[in-house]
């Protein structure tokens, strides 16, 4: 099976038509059609059907591309490894994170790890798809808001903390020592959407338990966006208390949410093989930074 053919089928399936695939691949439509027919012949599969006068991917083409995803991903990873060698980062600490934790507990832990390794550790931080990256061996360590709980991966509880409210200092509620659920009535709330990775996302569970899930008007991916919007006076950011250990709330008022459920930060790594030194140090610092 030729890579070029797979790339053409992929574009055809993803974009839904031969014209769209041609545009996406910057080749002519006739080249796309020729390549698809050639692939049909070589693979002995039906890939293209005419439906209501339009060339459309068949169920086989769609299924083939679903099955080809890991193969295309493996090529991307190999190219990425080569890129890392080229920029002198062949030996690096690779971390996957959900956006909510990326800018709170992670940066100080990375800084402390690099310090412990005499500034010699190259670090690659990858966002999202934490479980997939870990399972594929793309990363050494990952952090998220919940256990991944799949075979071969180990979940480590780092620390728990309550939800906090971040608001601009001029905000009338900034004068209070702590905010209650009732204080937040009528306020525009900013928070994270589900991370989409954890089996149970402790941040979303805390929001739910606090009765705030349906009250969020603006969802963001990153803590700094939430803090920035609060600084602009757009609303009150309801985030996890880990944010206090970062510099993101400088110039802002951070108030505890009374009777807040706890949010848990987790680290994850592959089970069986020992963590390499840099990852071990980072894990220690993550646990420490969260306390």
């Amino acid at each position: 099976m030729k890579l070029n053919a797979v790339q053409v089928i992929d574009a055809f399936v993803r974009l839904g038509g031969t014209g769209e695939a041609a545009q996406g691949l910057a080749i002519s439509q006739s080249a796309v059609i020729k390549s698809l027919h050639q692939a049909e012949h070589e693979l002995d599969l039906s890939l293209v059907a005419t439906v209501q006068g339009r060339l459309t991917p068949t169920p086989e083409a769609i299924e083939l591309m679903r099955l080809a995803r890991p193969a295309l991903g493996s090529l991307r990873r190999a190219r990425h490894e080569a890129d890392m060698i080229r920029v002198g980062m062949a030996d690096r600490l690779r971390i996957a994170t959900v956006p909510g934790l990326a800018h709170s507990i992670l940066p100080p832990a990375i800084a402390a790890t690099r310090l412990a390794l005499n500034d010699s550790a190259a670090v690659e931080v990858i966002f999202d798809h934490v479980r997939d990256h870990l399972a594929a061996g793309d990363v050494d360590l990952a952090i998220s808001y919940g256990p991944i709980a799949i075979d071969g991966l180990l979940d480590v509880v780092l620390k728990r903390c309550p939800l906090v409210c971040v608001l601009g200092r001029p905000h009338p509620l900034a004068g209070l020592d702590a905010l209650t659920h009732a204080d937040l009535d009528g306020e525009r709330l900013i928070s994270y959407g589900p991370d989409g990775v954890s089996r149970s996302d402790s941040f979303q569970a805390a929001l739910e338990q606090a009765g705030l899930t349906d009250r969020i008007s603006i969802t963001v991916r990153h803590t700094d966006t939430a803090c920035h919007l609060a600084r602009e006076g757009v609303g009150i950011a309801v985030v996890d208390g880990f944010v206090i250990s970062s510099g993101l709330t400088e110039g802002l008022a951070v108030r505890p949410l009374e009777e807040s459920p706890l949010v848990t930060a987790y680290a994850h790594h592959r089970d069986g093989a020992p963590l390499d030194r840099a990852a071990g140090i980072l894990l220690d610092h993550l646990a420490g930074a969260a306390t």
Binding site: M1, A68, R77, E81, I85, A90
Partner: peptide, 21 residues
């Protein structure tokens, strides 16, 4: 070395894809 491991995954995944066809 990490690149070679990644190339090993490429070989495995494309072999699996041929089986899927």
């Amino acid at each position: 070395h990490a690149l070679m491991r990644a190339l090993g995954a490429v070989e495995d995944e494309w072999r699996a894809l041929r089986g899927s066809v």
